[in-house]
Simulated scan of single mutants.
Amino acid sequence: MDFSQDIILESNRALLRPLATADFEGLQAVAFEPELWQYTLTRADDRISLAAYIAAAMQGREQHQRYPFLIIDKDTDRVAGSTSYYNINLHEARLSIGYTWIGSEFQRTGLNRAVKYLLFRHAFEVLGCERVELETDAHNHKSQEAMRRMGATEEGTLRSHRYTQGGRRRDTVIFSVIKPEWNVLRQGAFREFDTRESA
């Protein structure tokens, strides 16, 4: 994976482009909702923490550990949030999707599923991944249900997995999609975003 490349992913509903420092102003309109950050590892619900969040994301890209994207909702042509690839190990043909947050007004509109479609498609069809992982706090039932609805398989819970806000040790629920499942999912859960003929 070439971290210096500007990856642009687009469907009829969503546009993902590399996150940039200049996106600070646009993200302010959707980031400053405390409830968005209840189960995240860090927060970005004020100017200082949002600036730190973007800086950490950019540093992760420079260090080839994370590839952060800005999410644009094409229905409104507005910035809606951010997401990333991380835990990228293309020698083992796997990566994770995470650091995903979307402003409350864009939730339950299909945008999150449109974003995941683009990320899964690029991972499986361009990067050659065999496995894509997603993880969430065991307390974040909303996120877990969204992963199930899009067809990801729940694999289990990693107990006392990592530190989160306030130094709490969180249990992490792991989901995955593997390459043999992708063709079925793109014609099922992601059908409205897939413009190709069925195989």
Rank of each mutant, 00 (worst) to 15 (best):
F124W: 06
K74F: 04
G81H: 04
T109Q: 07
A138D: 10
A80L: 00
L27F: 01
T42F: 12
Q59I: 12
I88P: 00
I48H: 15
P68Q: 02
F124S: 08
I71K: 06
H141E: 14
R66D: 08
A52D: 14
A57P: 08
D137Y: 00
L41C: 11
K74R: 10
P68M: 00
N87A: 14
A138Y: 10
Q65T: 10
G103D: 03
H139V: 12
F124I: 09
R66V: 10
L19K: 02
W101H: 03
D45M: 04
A31F: 02
A14W: 03
Y67T: 01
F24Y: 14
L90H: 07
Y67L: 00
L134M: 12
D46A: 01
L118I: 09
H141L: 15
V79Q: 10
D137L: 01
R94W: 07
A56F: 11
Y86I: 10
L134R: 08
G60S: 05
V115F: 08
T42N: 12
L111C: 05
A20E: 15
F32C: 09
Y117D: 05
L111S: 05
I54S: 05
L70R: 03
E130I: 10
T100E: 02
W101N: 06
S96L: 10
F69D: 05
F124M: 08
A55E: 13
N112W: 09
Q59T: 14
T76C: 11
L134H: 09
A93G: 08
M147Q: 08
G26K: 09
E62V: 11
H64P: 00
Y117G: 05
A31R: 03
A56C: 12
G128R: 07
P34I: 03
